[in-house]
């Protein structure tokens, strides 16, 4: 992923129209989405979005603050600099005459990809990996003749125990928890704190 890209991971209410609000907010602030994926989480009332935007860090900070203002956005994290696992699924239909197949099979083997469908003169390869692996894979199969490509957009998750999930403040509502939540929000939203 190039240095200009910022990767945002967010939890949003699973309501109609939320994707539209998120994408228009980013467009309205003059930013460009380079990859986007959305899906339900283990909690069916919550969707998770992974959005890659083509901006620098300061602009990404502004995007995060603006996105927080959308009522349906529950939590956002800029995970660009975190240790993460990111994956993208690609389906690629390539021309594969009899003579090409063995060489294609070697590439498939290297990338731990799979053959999803075979016809007499073409095959559909299913491959998943980090974005740069996907790019390399596509470069290698390109000479065989790519007929069609479908990419899912990146999904990502931080490594280790910590992660993006609904915290207590999003469920229970005791005054003490609200105060904690408010302090945390303030710390996150106000940007750089002097002396920290």
């Amino acid at each position: 992923m190039s240095t200009r890209h910022r990767l945002l991971s967010m939890l949003v209410e699973n309501h109609p129209g939320v994707l539209n609000k998120v994408s228009s907010m980013i467009r309205r602030r003059g930013m460009n989405i380079t990859s986007l994926s959305v899906g339900e989480t283990d909690d069916e009332s919550v969707s998770r979005m992974t959005v890659a935007i083509d901006v620098g860090r300061a602009q990404a900070d502004q995007a995060v603050k603006q996105l927080y203002k959308l009522i349906e956005v529950i939590k956002i994290s800029d995970i660009t600099e975190d240790p993460i696992i990111d994956r993208e699924l690609v389906l690629c239909k390539v021309t594969a005459g009899r003579g090409d197949r063995s060489e294609l099979l070697q590439i498939i083997d290297i990338f731990k990809a799979k053959i999803a469908d075979v016809a007499t003169d073409s095959m559909v390869i299913e491959m998943s990996g980090a974005e740069d692996q996907v790019e390399t894979f596509l470069e290698l199969v390109r000479p065989f003749g790519i007929k069609e490509v479908a990419r899912s957009g990146t999904v990502a998750m931080t490594r280790g125990r910590e992660g993006l999930r609904l915290s207590a403040k999003h469920q229970a509502r005791t005054p003490a928890q609200q105060d904690l939540a408010a302090a945390e929000r303030q710390r996150r939203s106000a940007g750089v704190l002097v002396g920290d």
């Binding site: 209410e13 009522i71 349906e72 529950i74 609904l166 303030q186 106000a190 704190l193």
Partner: peptide
């Protein structure tokens, strides 16, 4: 609303600063 809890009280540490 779980996704809407605007901060209204300034952080006491920041206020001290």
């Amino acid at each position: 609303l779980r996704s809407y809890n605007p901060t209204t009280r300034g952080n006491p540490l920041q206020i001290k600063r």
